[in-house]
Design a protein around this nucleic acid. Sequence first.
DNA 1: TATAATGCTCTCTGTAACGC
DNA 2: GCGTTACAGAGAGCATTATA
Length: 527
Amino acid sequence: MGKFNQRNKSSAHKRNNKKFAPDPCKSDEDIVKDSIHLFYLDIDELLTNPNTTRRYKKMLRTGIGNPPRPQNAFMLYRRNQMAGPLFINRAPEDKKAKFISGEIAGFWNNETKEVMKTFYALQRMAKKKHGQIYENYKFIRNFKNQLKIRKTETYEESSVSSRSSSTETFPESSPNEVIASPNSTNYVSQSSTESFEFDSIISSICDNIQDYDIIYDSFGQPYLFNTKTDQICFLPNINFDNYQTNEMMLNTSQQPCIIQQPELANIPQSYNELANTIQQPELANIPQQSYNELANTIQQPELANIPQQSYNELANTIQQPELPTIPQQSYNGPEFIQQPELVNIPQQSYNELANIIQQPELATIFQQSYNGPEFIQQPKLANIPQQSYNELANTIQQPELPTIFQQSYNGPEFIQQPKLANIPQQSYNELANTIQQPELPTIFQQSYNGPEFIQQPKLANIPQQSYNELANTIQQPELPTIFQQERIYDYRPDFNLSQQILYNMLFEQSPPKQDGYSPGCSYKKST
DNA sequence: TATAATGCTCTCTGTAACGC
DNA sequence: GCGTTACAGAGAGCATTATA
């Protein structure tokens, strides 16, 4: 469509907008409710920006992105039409968007005033809902020249390191300085075959870690820099990308984060609040609604195949057929809220559970988990079917599983320690690789799912320390190990960022190796 | 004038597997 | 080692209207 036409239609829409202004005698909700227009999507679903879009998926992949704009009347109309029988069963060759858009535009322009009025009401409702989800959202236009700059920045970022989302990360390390360094006399080792030197350097780091920094050249290649001797060491044996999460967390916890990218200003507010709490603004960009897609993105199809709303299938996946006895709605979203008959958690049932799994000391933990203030203040969330936990305990014979599930409902720790919400969600990949227990990431994902997260952001705050403590209690040391790889709460305050990364690399269990970069990346590795 | 959604097509880039 | 080919993944473009 040409610019000229678009400008003409733009003026037409202004007329329409005035024509279909809010009705002072009727709310938008009533307008929609009274409409006889056929809706092929649930109204609530229609009003919500879909999570199947490319921008959403990109945000899942990169963790960076601004909230989508609220849908306008035509977009709502088009989306509804696309879900209708006229288009949904159409052959792929007839589904080209360029034709469909025109076709739907034709429908739109021929619609009655009543239908138009309905969709303008929906537009206002969508905007309202959008405002609830993304508080303080403000649309920031991305001009073409800015886009070009941003693309360049993105290219450089990707070629430098996926860890470094901004240049503020390492202001003390100028890439130019570093790239010249390998040619200098201070350069220690560049060949991966020089393992002896590498080992000796690592040994030196262990003894004097505070003398070292990590610096990067313009290709993103990390080097070890001895601040006392000014020596630079190439680190061929360490995949720094594995420590992305650690660095991100350290970076934001120890250094002020300056957001220069305009798109970051539009972080959904609900995530903003979370991020503010945990002092990790970049984590706010992680879409929390869909871990299936995340699993798809991270190329772990087996994770993606675990339906999050279904414990039956989960149980099948992990080959524990007895798990289907877990009432599924109790863990998930609106269904749970809409089933008021599931009331009153008998406290002793958790004692019994603990007894059954032969760890009486857990009884206390369980009771706390289910009796926090939220339980009292949010009675509808208390609707956890009770006998199910008994049945679960009777059947599963895996004490850690019920424990994990219950964590999802948050004990007092959660309320009293909101800052412990720092579960890096991008790290499910590494988590899944590490633990090799597909049910565990799935379980954790449950904790973040569903509308409750958006509507009740505090419910997302799973206290991670409690996992460690819990895991210690039940004598499953692998659990704290898993989480420790993903977070650093016990970082050394006397270390700077680089030293902390080194510290974690050297003294913590190495995360699984990953590909250096995925196909399609338009940058070359340094040689 | 970018962008909200959509699904297809095309282009670009990197990698692997070949043959020479 | 070099060139070619095939493949995969990512991203842009298209086409629409309304909006900031």
